[in-house]
């Protein structure tokens, strides 16, 4: 098990206004890895999707806490864990399918697709009535791609 070289934890209310803060905070913490503009946008977008899911799905019936842990590892690897204590996902596999959404309106059902597309790995653990943990893993090459790992 690799040891992180830096770690930060955040706890947020599940208010939509905090979506912006969450993605900016994570990307600011990851800035030390010297990511490219594209890489930082990928991370910000994936975090935004995961946090939005906590707000519109996990805590759809009220307010709750969103727990974010960001860990940086050697070699430019970043791991972002986004956890809630909300309703949980009945069928994770189904939830990850492109265009699947339990909400109508303008929700595209592409939240997980965006996370998967912009990260190297996306892990989802969920238990009904207990909550969901989404872990995003991405290795950034950085602006200096020749950097030693």
């Amino acid at each position: 098990m690799q040891k992180p070289k830096n770690e930060v934890k955040l706890q947020l209310d599940s208010r939509s206004v905090n979506e912006g803060y969450a993605r900016v905070a994570v990307s600011a913490f990851a800035a030390v890895l010297d990511p490219t503009v594209e890489e930082i946008n990928d991370i910000r977008t994936a975090v935004s999707e995961a946090v939005t899911n906590c707000i519109v799905h996990a805590y759809r019936n009220g307010m709750g806490k969103i727990y974010i842990r960001v860990r940086l590892f050697d070699g430019g690897k970043i791991e972002v864990q986004i956890r809630d204590r909300g309703c949980g996902i009945a069928d994770v596999q189904k939830a990850r399918e492109p265009l699947f959404t339990t909400l109508g309106g303008d929700r595209s059902g592409l939240g997980f697709s965006v996370m998967e597309s912009f990260c190297d790995r996306v892990r989802v653990r969920s238990e009904l009535g207990k909550g969901t943990t989404v872990t995003l893993i991405k290795t950034v090459k950085g602006r200096d791609a020749s950097r030693e790992p």
């Binding site: 946008n41 935004s48 999707e49 309106g105 965006v114």
Partner: peptide
């Protein structure tokens, strides 16, 4: 300056 899948929903809608 930033867009996530909500932008997709906006355009699709």
């Amino acid at each position: 300056t930033f867009m996530d899948s909500s932008g997709i929903g906006l355009v699709m809608g």
